[in-house]
């Protein structure tokens, strides 16, 4: 079972090695396997959306980064708004503080079993847990149509923002998954777990209440997060 470490601009220094490993695994996947991106001479895949507004969930198991997710507030420039706005013909590009774009998910090859209790489902569970914790109401973005039935299997609801379409020989759709307690409960039931998959170390940045000068510090090491609002009355 993975532990999903929440990594953001404030605590990234605690994850130097893991973050570098994450960028190399991204290069393996998005450059060598998917051919979505040109090779990078340093073997790390980084794009224009890897900025300080991004929050990463690094799925770590037995000391390795085996899976990942990148979450970006849709109020910031994100892949759908900058690259795929034409795929939101039904609803328009979302620009909501409590909607997060979910991108850069891979699973390392030896963990890529398609069984429903595998690494991908564990990552989905961690994303849903994080989204609920942070008060998000939807997570999603551009997705390969082929994998959409996985959301169904988790009993998740995903709203399309436009029609599926073919781009560069692959089929994609922009869809957002509803974040709620039921969605977390169903994926946990499938995984047969009741515990948190998240680890929060060091300074935490609240995802939604985007005053980025206010920092949450995890004093307990795990669950109870106490807010220290800096510069607020």
């Amino acid at each position: 079972m993975i532990t999903a470490h929440v990594v953001n601009a404030q605590n990234k220094h605690l994850y130097e090695n893991e973050f570098d490993e994450f960028l190399r695994r991204r290069h393996d996947f998005f450059v060598h396997q998917k051919h979505w991106r040109p090779p990078s001479p340093d073997g790390r895949e980084v794009d224009q959306f890897d900025t300080d507004v991004a929050t990463y969930l690094l799925g770590i198991e037995e000391g390795r980064v085996v899976t990942s997710a990148r979450l970006i507030p849709t109020t910031e420039p994100h892949m759908v708004s900058e690259v795929f706005p034409h795929m939101c013909e039904k609803s328009g590009v979302p620009r909501l503080p409590d909607w997060a774009e979910w991108t850069r998910t891979f699973v390392v090859p030896d963990k890529r079993s398609t069984g429903l209790r595998g690494t991908l489902t564990q990552l989905c569970c961690a994303v849903m847990e994080y989204a609920l914790d942070e008060g998000l109401t939807a997570v999603g973005g551009v997705q390969e149509t082929y994998f959409m039935p996985h959301h169904g299997a988790l009993k998740w609801h995903a709203e399309p923002l436009g029609m599926a379409r073919e781009e560069n020989g692959e089929w994609y759709i922009v869809a957002y998954i509803e974040v709620n307690e039921a969605a977390l409960a169903s994926v946990r039931k499938i995984l047969r777990i009741e515990h948190s998959l998240l680890a929060r170390r060091g300074a935490q940045v609240p995802f939604v209440h985007g005053d980025r000068s206010s920092i949450y510090i995890d004093l307990s090491g795990r669950h109870e997060i106490h807010a220290i609002h800096q510069g607020e009355p």
Partner: peptide, 23 residues
Amino acid sequence: QVQLVTMAIYAGMTIQALSHDDE
């Protein structure tokens, strides 16, 4: 084609959601 693919994947998602055999 685009319309058909969109309906197909939502039908596929729905069928996966209706199956309980793994639980």
